[in-house]
């Protein structure tokens, strides 16, 4: 559904995102996890067509976000970090306006507004001026506008930030439900939240993707597992089983990146498997092009993440 290749973005001289590549499949709920200023918002703004990347290509449903921006924008529902609301408008008036901007027919808008007000539990407030709503309800109005036109892709930037705990739980439930029908990309700096909602997580730090995995595996790495990244010159189909057979290795994942065959190897902390791994690669006649530990930096990043909820 979404393909991001070699995405790089500068704000003036400041590098915000550096050579980020990933894909999102249809129906997947992908979480961006990273401390503040990691580049999450920048990446999302580029996916939604708000601004073009300095370098790299992003396609959404096979439409290029720069060249065919209008087609992309038609398919995306977006909730920016600061919920963009016209505070002087009532809830239904606002939704109606957003529906018209997205090219919906007025009858369709009417029906959909009824639906989204139901979904987002805004029933009692649909006539209220948005400026008078509490933060949690504003967030819901923000989500309501994002899903109004039944977009194929939903992009939510920190959807639970700054709302009270009970509403956080409700909002997460809502996103989980939405994820059943739609492709969702969301960002967060709270680890448990992402593990709860997402089927896959990208950890992004200082503009780079440092890990990409399922929430379960990420939880494993938190429990004292180290990671090695190896680049091997050899056929992946044969390399994978060999690496897996090295004693002490928990898991190996293959991650091709721009003609480079990268493997992430996980093993229990405390052992040093570099020797065994390099030997098994070389003895098979393949070349070991690089080997680096990524576990430590990952741990640093986790330390900066909110690993528990402040309730």
């Amino acid at each position: 559904m979404i393909q991001v290749r070699g995405l790089t973005h500068y704000y003036g001289p400041h590098l915000a995102v550096q050579d980020v590549s990933f894909g999102v499949k249809k129906g997947e709920v992908l979480g961006f996890l990273g401390p503040n200023g990691a580049g999450k918002t920048t990446t999302m703004r580029i996916i939604t067509g708000f601004m073009p990347p300095t370098r790299g290509q992003v396609t959404l449903a096979d439409f290029d976000v720069v060249e065919q921006s209008l087609e992309v924008r038609r398919r995306v529902g977006y909730l920016p970090e600061t919920v963009p609301l016209y505070t002087e408008m009532p809830v239904t008036g606002y939704l109606k306006y957003m529906g018209t901007l997205r090219g919906m027919k007025s009858k369709q808008i009417k029906n959909r507004i009824r639906d989204v007000i139901d979904i987002c539990q805004l029933g009692d407030y649909h006539k209220t001026i948005i400026g008078k709503l509490s933060k949690g309800f504003r967030q819901r109005v923000g989500i309501a506008q994002a899903i109004l036109h039944e977009p194929e892709v939903l992009v939510l930037d920190e959807p639970t930030i700054g709302i009270d705990p009970i509403q956080v739980v409700e909002t997460r439930k809502l996103i989980q439900d939405l994820g059943k029908q739609q492709t969702v990309v969301l960002s967060s700096h709270i680890l448990p939240e992402v593990s709860m909602i997402c089927s896959r997580v990208l950890i992004i730090h200082q503009g780079r993707i440092v890990a990409e995995d399922t929430p379960q595996n990420l939880a494993l790495s938190l429990q004292g597992v180290e990671q090695l990244q190896v680049e091997v010159g050899g056929p992946p189909a044969e390399v994978l089983p060999v690496l897996r057979r090295v004693p002490g290795v928990n898991e190996v994942t293959h991650r091709p990146q721009q003609n480079r065959e990268l493997y992430t190897i996980r093993f229990q902390r405390g052992k040093d498997l570099r020797d065994e791994i390099s030997r098994s690669i070389v003895s098979n006649g393949w070349s070991l092009l690089s080997l680096q530990a990524v576990g430590m930096s990952l741990e640093d990043i986790f330390l900066r993440l909110t690993t528990h909820e402040e309730l």
Partner: peptide, 14 residues
């Protein structure tokens, strides 16, 4: 100022 421009420019509006 309010950031609603982000919404406007990510809507399918020329």
């Amino acid at each position: 100022k309010l950031g609603t421009i982000e919404l406007l420019l990510t809507s399918p509006v020329r």
